[in-house]
Design a protein around this nucleic acid. Structure first.
Lengths: 193, 193
DNA sequence: CCCGTCATGTAATCTGTTACATGATTGG
DNA sequence: CCAATCATGTAACAGATTACATGACGGG
């Protein structure tokens, strides 16, 4: 149940947030580590409030409800980090597709490659924007919260760069049946670790 | 329902496979694009056979049942690749944790970083092994199937290299409160794309 | 006044996990 | 003979998606 911890993580930044706010970040492909659907977020917030992990700070005459994390929630976040095993189970739809391009004819494979390149370029653009615009919008750019966040954006940006290079090599490989498979960037490969 | 397509993908390599075989690959963290639990695989195989996407080639006196993909299954695989939108929804437990290291005291954060480094190094080692040993074990190393697979291993290996570098930078950042956040490898950042 | 966004939720369904049950075969 | 691995499945539960429903507010 990592959604619970993703919500605690988002609230641990301090300011009260509504289900709507949280959904905005959980649904932005470019600025998130965890995806969730709106209905899931609303029902999980209700559950968490009942369990006493988060508190309601404000409920406007209109439906808008704001939540903050409380001490019990922070304890749970720390417990999760330290005592629950990280889940390295991979479910990578994009990789699964790229692995199967060879069942298509070359024109179709190329079309799918283009689509993936486009997606990665958009992500690259968004991440660059997020990294460049932090100082204008955010509260304290030198707080641990934002330092961590910027570090993660940097990782993601490097990953999109890597992916875009690799996709071009893959395209070459698919076009030319005798070209070598993309080689390693790494130098000598030790026989043992 | 990407599990169905992950199974079709695995069977599309040609040879008959049993639920047990498939589970072995779906549960190996280092050699897979899609994770699934055993019971899920067995029941999905049964469903797919009823739907006529795969055929049973052999059922030994013992329970062992082997499946192959058929034309209808191959069509479905191609339809999925071309006409279903790739799901770029991210659920990255590891990233979520790294983003929240700052809620822990430095010693605990360091401990978690070590654990992640160890995991990535193991993955790096496995991937190197998979890339170096293909020619000894596999049937036709120059078939499109294995070329694609090696290309994907190469991508994953580069990603672990990138991750390990980044984790060390993150460690430095956490230790030293005034050190800069890891910077970009990329050169000039265009204002527009 | 209508449309888009804000804002929350319910119900049905599907997907995925966990715990359990069963039994054959293989190697020490 | 015992333990590990092979091999499959069921049942109960938890997690997640989809479709739908509701209604306020603001801008054109």
């Amino acid at each position: 149940m990592a959604l619970r911890h993703a919500i605690l993580a988002a609230l641990s930044r301090g300011r009260p947030r509504t289900g709507y706010d949280l959904n905005a970040s959980f649904n932005d492909v470019n600025d998130r580590a965890w995806h969730a659907s709106p209905s899931q977020v609303y029902s999980e917030l209700a559950k968490m409030e009942k369990l006493g992990l988060i508190d309601i700070t404000e409920r406007t005459e209109r439906g808008r409800t704001s939540y903050v994390i409380n001490d019990s929630g922070l304890d749970e976040l720390r417990r999760w980090l330290l005592h629950d095993q990280p889940d390295h189970g991979i479910r990578d739809d994009a990789a699964l597709r790229l692995l199967n391009l060879w069942v298509l004819d070359p024109a179709d494979a190329d079309y799918l490659l283009d689509a993936e390149v486009t997606f990665q370029r958009q992500r690259q653009f968004s991440l660059r924007h997020l990294l460049l615009s932090w100082d204008e919008e955010r509260e304290d750019p030198d707080s641990p919260v934002w330092r961590s966040r910027r570090a993660l954006y940097t990782l993601w940006l490097r990953q999109t760069d890597l992916m875009l290079d690799w996709l071009e090599e893959l395209r070459t490989m698919l076009h030319d049946p005798v070209s070598p498979v993309p080689e390693l960037l790494t130098g000598a490969i030790p026989a043992k670790i």
